[in-house]
Simulated assay, not measured.
Amino acid sequence: MTKNTEHQFSMLVRELRKEYVGNGPKEITTRFIDSWAISEMKGNLTNIEKFMMNSEEGKRMVNEARTEFVKKIYQSSDVLAKFEELVQAKIVRVFSDINIEEDIAMTIFVFDKPLKLRSK
C-alpha cells in the first residue's frame, strides 16, 4: 500500500458519509498505523444541524443522531467489504466519535493485520 491507498481510503469514507448522511466532510485525513486506519474529518455538519445547535436540546439531538447513525453505517457488511477489499485485511472493529462544537469527527478502523505501506 502507498500513501495513495490512504487517500483512496479517505475518499471511500467521504463517499459513504455523503451517501448515508447527505454530505461528506469538507476535509479528511487518513493515516495507517500498524493495524489501524485513523480517519479525521472536519466540516461534517449540515446547515440544518448547525442551526439546531443553537439550543442545548438541539446539540444533544445532533450529537446522538450523528453518533448512532454513523455506528449503524459501519455495521453493514457491504460497507465493511469495501474497506477490506481496498486494504486486503479484515475489519475487527470500528470506533467513531464526533465533537459537534468543533465539527471534527474521528473514525478508527481496526484490522486483523498490520496495514503495511509498501512502495509500488
Rank of each mutant, 00 (worst) to 15 (best):
I38D: 04
A89R: 01
K90P: 13
E19V: 07
F111P: 01
V79T: 07
I91P: 07
R60C: 00
K90R: 14
N4E: 15
R93V: 13
V79M: 03
I104N: 03
V87E: 03
D34T: 11
A37W: 04
F9P: 10
M61S: 15
V21H: 11
F111C: 01
E27G: 09
I48F: 14
E56T: 03
E84C: 11
E27V: 12
N44T: 07
F51Q: 13
F51D: 13
L80H: 05
M53A: 12
E6T: 11
D112L: 12
K3W: 11
Y20L: 02
K113S: 01
S10N: 10
E102I: 02
S39E: 10
T2I: 11
L86Y: 06
E49W: 03
L115Q: 01
W36C: 15
K59M: 14
R66E: 06
K18C: 07
F9T: 07
F69Y: 11
K113I: 06
V70N: 02
N44S: 06
F69E: 01
V13Q: 04
S119N: 08
D97Y: 06
H7V: 15
D103E: 02
E27I: 11
F83R: 01
M11P: 01
A105C: 09
K71F: 08
I104S: 04
F9M: 10
N4L: 15
K3F: 10
S35D: 15
K26G: 06
T5L: 12
V62H: 03
G58I: 06
M52Y: 04
K42Q: 15
F95V: 11
K72R: 14
T46E: 10
L80S: 04
D34C: 09
D97K: 09
M11V: 12
M61N: 14
I100A: 04
W36P: 02
Y20N: 12
T107H: 03
V62Q: 02
R14F: 04
T30D: 11
L16D: 06
K120M: 05
R93S: 14
L117T: 08
S10P: 05
I100N: 09
V110D: 01
